[in-house]
Each structure stands twice: as structure tokens, then as C-alpha cells.
Design a protein around this nucleic acid. Structure first.
Length: 417
RNA sequence: GUGCCUAUAGCUCAGCAGGUAGAGCGCUGGAUUGUGGUUCCAGAUGUCGUGGGUUCAAAUCCCACUAGGCACCCCA
């Protein structure tokens, strides 16, 4: 019988990597706090219809990547492939539109998509995201983008690129797609096989093609920016102005296409070259003013949000910054059973003083010293019968080898130095 | 979902013109019964990813499956 293993596309996050995950989450929470975002926790599974209607039935996510299963009562449930639809569902369900001001919510947790696993792509992956719901103003777009950049910066990540675009709205985008489709009809025959297919199925995807030979053709295709309606154009100009006000470096990518149907107007993405391989997108986001209505809401809920691929962010953090090592402040080494019982109390005091303490089992001192060294303890506390009767302990600095004698009251302070 | 590459000790890998496994690091014990790191000695590493086939004989050749990596698709 073979041992049971983690299933394909899932993985265990072990120390020391789990420490980096915690650091990233701590940074994100602190940035969210400063921007006055509060946490929302939604269920990990929902009625299948939520994603079909919210994300879009024709998207790859819904059409072939969802973990969908039948509940015992016959209903169809799905493990969430993303979280924006759930947040909007909660917003509607709890009438958060009646609350004063913008609803500024953040979340972090696992998402599930049944794709072929690859580096930076897992079937259970983690997203840290935020949604600002209740306003359509471009000022919100700029602040959301600033906030996510702040998270990356404070995680110590450098060298990323911010791309922004406007994908229009239900008024102007269909006009553009029609124009694109018309133009492609004439030139698609000379393009790569994938583009010939995309020209029929999803013309916008042609813009994303990476085949070098196709680039001249793509460059000559009409741009969405020439087809934006008055409202969308004004919105996009404002976003760019507000980003520039903040000195945020960005690049307009008229050809950037996002895979979720609910995006309109502003979309953005941050990529980082390095540890990620071809999955170089660290985060993506955009505005979704029509999403609430498509979920059956009578009230509008214009909003914008993003989600960071936490797995990918952790990868780049691990690549670019030296992991802050978990260190033991003091390794308490009792010699003998009596000393062990005494040391248990000493260890408790030191822990109450906020120190990281490892209490060794009673045993040979040599063995304890070896272990202290392997664990990378900063100090070792030697406690035998001599120390207990004298009421003074021997504290050894592992780096210098220097030993000092300290009494119990001054112990915590001595360990700290 | 498609194509290509890969799978040997806890880790990194060697072994492959077929003859039932090795190195370094790490781990355990000892040299040293109250002192680690360096050194020396000893030891255990393992259904060679899983299952089947060819063969007197398979880690080695063939097939399938599983998992990982890369590219595509797509996305976080």
C-alpha cells in the first residue's frame, strides 16, 4: 500500500516558507488597515450559479476549471475559483449598500481551479484581495492601485511593472469588438493558427498573442482607445491623472485583456520577471460596475478590486529578499530530572517575558549543546544541581562562546542582550 | 485539456553498452559521564515514483499510470 500524498496541484506550506507567508499577510493587513479596509470572510464554496452568472459562463474559469459537485439534496455547489463574486453576493445579501460610505473590504484565502499545475499555478492557490464597493469614481481606482503597490513595496519586492488599461463599457466595447472582428476577417488568414481560431471565438485574445510574426499585424489592428465612449474616456483620463499625481509609474497597455467577463473600464495588472517563469502576473484587478446587477441585485454596486496571487508574491519575496530566520532566543538545558522540573518553571517565566524558549529534555549536557547549536539558539542556559543550589545560572552566548552567571531575576534581560 | 523533458537515501545528485545500488551534505551513536561549532571513528539510510512487459537476470530496455518541471491554453 502506497502512502497517501497531497493531491495534484495542492501542496503543503512548511517552515521556513510559512514564515514568509505570514510576513506577506501581516504586511497586507497593515496596509489595508491604514487605507481603512476591513476583512470579509466568505464561504469557500457557493452555489454554482453565483460563478456562472458572476464570472461569466463563457470564461475558461467557468467553462472548464471549476470544482463543481452535487450536494446531497441535488443542488450544485462549487469551490470558489475567485472571490469577487462572493463578496458582491455578500454585499447584496447583507444590504451593505445601506451602510454609510464606501464598503472597503479585504480578504485572503484559498481559491480552486482545475488547471494543469505548473510553477506558480496550483489547483488550490491563495489570493489576497480587496474590493471598494459603492462608487464609480476614478479616484477610487487610483487609490486602490496605490494601495496594492504599497503592499508590494512593503513586502520588499522591486522591479515590478504596472500595466493599466480601459476595456470600455457595455456601450462601447461591443462596437469595438465588432470593428475588430471585421478587420480580423481580412487579415487572420496570415496569422498563427491560434489567432485564426481566436479571431472567431474571442477576437480580444488576438491582441494578447505573443508570436513575433503576428506582431506587425496586431499593431495595425484598431485600438480600444479609439473606440471608448465619452464616459469611459473621461474615466480613464482621470485614472491616469490621479496615478501620475501619486508618482506611480505605469504603462498603458491597450492590448491587455483580462479573462473575467465582469470587468469594465479600468483594468490593471502587475508583472514581475524572475522566479515566476511564464506565470509572471503577480496580481490583477479592475472595475466591475455591472456585476451586482448580473447577480440579480436591484441596487447598483459599482466597484473595483484586485487580487494578489499570494503563492506568486511569496515566490518573488523568497527570491529577492533573504528570509528572516526564525531564531530561538534561549535553549534551556537541564541536567537531570530535578533540574528539568526547575527549568520548566524558568522556561515559563522567560516565555512570559516574550522570549522564544526551547526547553530540552533532561539529559547529557553535551547532547544539549549540540542540539542548541543545530537549532541556531542565540543563548543556552545551563542548569544543574550546582546552579539550583547557588540560585545562579550559567548563560552561554553561542556565537562568542562567552559564559556569564546570572540570577533568576535578571535572566530575561540577560538573554535579551 | 495538448506537446516535450524528468522521477535513485531526508536534500543535491552519480550509477544506464542489462548482472538485485553509491558520493557529498544531513541524520544517529562514540572519541569527551557539566560545554556546541572544527576534527576523527562507527552506523542507518532506499519496495531505484507505481504497475505491467521483454530477459536466465531490469534502477538500466519497452508500455501504461502517477507526480513535478517547461511550453501552449489561460490566469493569480
Amino acid at each position: 500500500m502506497n502512502p497517501i500524498r497531497a493531491i495534484r496541484g495542492t501542496r503543503d506550506i512548511l517552515p521556513p516558507s510559512s514564515t514568509v507567508w505570514n510576513q506577506v499577510e501581516t504586511v497586507a493587513r497593515e496596509v489595508f488597515r491604514r487605507y481603512n479596509y476591513q476583512e470579509i470572510r466568505t464561504p469557500v464554496f457557493e452555489e454554482t450559479g453565483l460563478f456562472a452568472r458572476g464570472v461569466g459562463a463563457e470564461t475558461d474559469i467557468v467553462s472548464k476549471e471549476m470544482y463543481t459537485f452535487e450536494d446531497r439534496d441535488g443542488g450544485s455547489l462549487t469551490l470558489r475559483p475567485e472571490n469577487t463574486a462572493s463578496v458582491i453576493r455578500a454585499y447584496i445579501e447583507h444590504r451593505l449598500d445601506q451602510q454609510p460610505g464606501l464598503q472597503k473590504l479585504y480578504y485572503m484565502g484559498p481559491m480552486f481551479r482545475r488547471e494543469r499545475p505548473q510553477k506558480g499555478r496550483y489547483r488550490q492557490f491563495y489570493q489576497i484581495g480587496a474590493e471598494a464597493i459603492g462608487a464609480g469614481s476614478p479616484a477610487v481606482d487610483a487609490e486602490v492601485i496605490e494601495m496594492v503597490c504599497e503592499i508590494l513595496t512593503r513586502c520588499g519586492v522591486e522591479g515590478w511593472k504596472l500595466f493599466v488599461n480601459s476595456v470600455g463599457c457595455p456601450e462601447c466595447r461591443p462596437v469595438y469588438v465588432a470593428a475588430l472582428r471585421e478587420r480580423l476577417a481580412g487579415v487572420a488568414a496570415g496569422m498563427c493558427r491560434d489567432c485564426q481560431r481566436r479571431a472567431e471565438t474571442n477576437p480580444l485574445r488576438v491582441l494578447d498573442c505573443k508570436v513575433p510574426e503576428d506582431q506587425p499585424v496586431i499593431d495595425a489592428l484598431p485600438s480600444i482607445h479609439d473606440h471608448l465612449c465619452q464616459t469611459c474616456r473621461g474615466h480613464f483620463d482621470s485614472v491616469k491623472t490621479y496615478l501620475a499625481d501619486r508618482s506611480l509609474a505605469f504603462e498603458v497597455r491597450p492590448r491587455m485583456v483580462r479573462g473575467l467577463d465582469y470587468y469594465m473600464r479600468t483594468t490593471f495588472e502587475i508583472v514581475h520577471e524572475g522566479a515566476l517563469g511564464s506565470q509572471n502576473s503577480v496580481l490583477g484587478g479592475g472595475r466591475y460596475d455591472g456585476l451586482a446587477e448580473s447577480l440579480g441585485s436591484r441596487v447598483a454596486a459599482p466597484g473595483i478590486g484586485f487580487s494578489i496571487g499570494e503563492d506568486r508574491l511569496v515566490m518573488t519575496v523568497e527570491e529577492t529578499t533573504a528570509a528572516a530566520r526564525h531564531t530561538i532566543d534561549v535553549y534551556v538545558a537541564p541536567m537531570g530530572e530535578a533540574a528539568f522540573r526547575h527549568c520548566a518553571l524558568v522556561a515559563r517565566d522567560l516565555r512570559n517575558a516574550g522570549l522564544v524558549v526551547e526547553l530540552a529534555p533532561a539529559g547529557k549536557l553535551k547532547k544539549a549543546m549540540e542540539t542548541a547549536n543545530k537549532l541556531g539558539a542565540r543563548k543556552t542556559l545551563l542548569v544543574g544541581d550546582n546552579e539550583i543550589t547557588a540560585g545562579a545560572y550559567t548563560l552561554k552566548d553561542m556565537a562568542s562562546g562567552e559564559q556569564t552567571t546570572v540570577d533568576r531575576t535578571g535572566l530575561a534581560e540577560a538573554v535579551r542582550n
